[in-house]
Simulated assay, not measured.
Amino acid sequence: MPPVPEENDDSHTEPTPVRAVHFAEQALLGALFLEPTRIAEVDLDAVHFDNRTHALLFAAMRTVELPDPEKHRESADWVAAVYAKARPQAPGLPHTYPHTLVQACPHPGHVAAYAGMIRADHARRTLRVHAERLARTAADPTLPHRVDATVAQADRLGSLLDQFSGQFAPHPGSLPRTPVAPEPAAEAGEEAVDDEQLLLATATGSPQTVQTMRWLMPSDFTVPLFGAMWGCITGLVHRGGSVDPITVLGEAQQAGLLTGAVTAQDLLGLLSDPHGVPDHWGEKIVRRALLHRARTVADRIVVFVDEPANTPYQLITGCRRALAEFASLHTRWNRATQPAPTTPAARGQGNPSAIRAGPATAATAKQLRTGIAR
């Protein structure tokens, strides 16, 4: 017997709340009990059914030999045989349920339409499962290669969308009807704050390295102020300007970053304590941004899927757009992690303050977490 869903409802009773697919499944099975030969018009497998009992009955229909149409009109033997085939795996299935299914079918000739509803709901459920896996993978700190695992799960989700795209016809109004909420900001944890502060300090001390770090964007930072400061530094570097804490401070002033909560002394202190090399800290920032983007993309897909007004084609379009945002960041991650030749000056060699690639001093980190970064 073909596989049937294992995690769905194993009861013949109506779920709460009752979804449209439940009635579509009942109508399709009722149509096949009435006219078994119509099973040739149904391009489904048992796994497409949401209700496990319905899946078992459909699988039984696939395995029990079809009856002669004339004899079937006068005998319920085939119905009894299907019931007998399915019941061992559904012990609570009452013998009257096939009759209930027959009564639930408005028109046996509409089996293709019922099958389309079932296939669409299966696509919706499957996309949700894969989106949840993507979110769990990206959020799991115990995975030894979390980025690789996250990218692999995103690729599987993309392949699934390619598979579904050939099953549902396009139509006007392809975008999901669900409004897209802004991406939530990543949590500015202790480690993130330290990494971002050290990136700014080391980039100010080794501006030549910044030329090779176009893969790092201000939006990758968890602290908006630090992202804006990175924009100030890269702006100076790409214009060929002089880069040191004072000139960066001038850029920050022009960008309106000096406020009552953030003073010139604060920013000078932020830029004057380099440790390590810029690309080391930059890679950590992009990695964190990539995992955060994977979680937000997964959440967005779940929102699309949970909106019943979205058609399968709209779901596919919306999910592809969301995954494209992840793919663009993944491209930048690949650029960040590709080995590139560097000079001693670019790597901070010979600079005593660049020897230790560790966290900021305790005093600086505490100030950032309790002051500027918040």
Rank of each mutant, 00 (worst) to 15 (best):
Asn351Met: 11
Gln314Arg: 03
Ala186Ser: 12
Gly350Trp: 11
Glu35Arg: 08
Ala20Gly: 11
Thr100Leu: 10
Leu28Arg: 02
Phe49Cys: 10
Gly240Ser: 07
Phe58Met: 08
Thr178Arg: 02
Phe58His: 02
Glu132Lys: 06
Pro308Leu: 11
Ala169Asn: 09
Pro218Gly: 05
Ala169Ile: 09
Gly92Cys: 07
Phe326Thr: 13
Gln153Leu: 02
His107Pro: 00
Val129Glu: 12
Ala298Ile: 04
Gly282Arg: 03
Gln26Asn: 08
Ala113Pro: 06
Gln167Ser: 05
Ala357Asn: 11
Glu70Gln: 15
Leu56Met: 08
Arg52Thr: 13
Val248Leu: 09
Phe226Gly: 01
Ala181Ser: 09
Ala139Arg: 09
Gly158His: 00
Ala185Lys: 12
Gly358Tyr: 03
Arg335His: 11
Met117Ala: 15
Ala84Trp: 09
Thr126His: 07
Ala27Pro: 05
Leu216Trp: 00
Ala336Ser: 11
Thr126Arg: 10
Asp162Leu: 08
Arg295Leu: 00
Leu258Tyr: 00
Arg214Gly: 15
Ser206Gly: 06
His330Arg: 15
Met1Glu: 14
Met61Thr: 06
Leu290Asp: 02
Pro179His: 03
Pro5Glu: 12
Asn351Pro: 00
Asp266Met: 04
Ala113Cys: 09
Ile316Tyr: 00
Thr150His: 03
Ala149Lys: 05
Gly318Met: 07
Ala139Met: 10
